[in-house]
Simulated assay, not measured.
Amino acid sequence: MSIMRIYLTGFMGSGKSTIGKLLATDLGWPFVDTDAWIEEQVGMRIPQYFAQEGEAAFRKREADALIATATHRHAVVATGGGMLVDPDRMQHAQQLGTVVYLCVDAETLYHRLAPDAAHRPLLWSNDGTPLEGTALHNHIARLLNRRRAAYEQAPFHVDADSSPKAVVQRVRRLLAS
């Protein structure tokens, strides 16, 4: 049996972990969440690590997590929202498996992320406080627009604005074609 890994990429809140778990269960494969892998390696939650060590150290840990996924013959991998924004990491993921971009618009992302913004360092203002309301919405839209071209380098794109079950079905159909 050939090696098959599916890498889910997209903005935070696009459903990578939710869809990944469901898809992995559906396929009978292991599920790997690279953020959980990083937390296990560093012994703390990502927001704490991010605050203590900074974004550059976190991005290095993401690169390590991507390399670690190669130990799985079959797996569904939920990548961090910024992991495959780096062109070298996107290329590496494409060499390791199939990359699927879960596409979600800024409005949907705002509604998904607003309740949890305090736990997501990239959704904080420069003074370290969580953004709210219009400022949060505008920040999400700007960051998504900056990252969109990188996400679109994934060979497969799936609309992830609907229910997780529907998104899993779309991913399965796309990969079967």
Results as ranks from 00 to 15, higher is better:
Q94I: 00
V100D: 05
H119I: 05
A106G: 12
Y101H: 15
L109D: 03
H111A: 15
D86C: 07
T79Q: 03
H92K: 10
M90D: 07
Y101S: 10
G81F: 13
D105L: 12
D116V: 15
D105R: 05
M83G: 09
A117D: 09
A114D: 13
H92A: 11
Y101W: 15
L109Y: 00
V100P: 01
T108D: 11
P87M: 14
Y101I: 10
D105S: 15
P115V: 12
E107I: 11
V76T: 12
D116I: 08
Q94K: 06
G82K: 04
A75L: 08
T79D: 07
G80T: 01
H111T: 10
L84M: 07
D86I: 00
A106N: 03
L84Y: 00
G82Q: 07
L96Q: 14
E107W: 05
A78G: 10
M83F: 14
A114C: 11
L96C: 10
A118G: 11
H92R: 13
Q95N: 12
Q95K: 10
Q95P: 03
L113R: 03
G81W: 00
G80V: 09
A75D: 01
V100T: 09
V76I: 14
H119W: 09
M90H: 02
L84F: 06
P87T: 05
V99G: 04
T98Q: 14
A106W: 14
T98E: 15
A75K: 08
T79K: 07
V77I: 15
P115Q: 10
D116K: 03
A78M: 08
G97E: 01
T108Y: 13
P115K: 06
R112T: 13
A93Y: 05
L96S: 07
T79F: 02
D88C: 00
V99F: 15
P87D: 08
A117Q: 06
V99M: 03
R112N: 11
H111N: 10
A93R: 08
D105C: 13
P87G: 09
V104E: 04
Y110V: 06
A75Y: 04
V76A: 12
A78S: 12
A106C: 15
T108S: 11
Y110G: 11
D116R: 06
Q91T: 06
M90G: 00
G81T: 04
H119Y: 03
G81A: 13
G81Y: 03
A93P: 04
V76W: 07
A78R: 13
L109C: 03
A93L: 07
P87S: 11
V100M: 09
G82S: 10
L96W: 01
Y110R: 03
D86N: 14
G97I: 12
R112K: 14
Q95R: 14
A106Q: 11
A78W: 14
T79M: 01
L84A: 05
A106T: 04
Q91E: 02
T98R: 08
Q95T: 12
T98G: 06
A75I: 12
L84D: 09
P115R: 01
G80K: 01
A114N: 04
L96V: 04
Y101R: 11
L109M: 08
M90W: 00
P87R: 08
R112A: 07
R112G: 14
V99S: 10
T98N: 10
E107H: 15
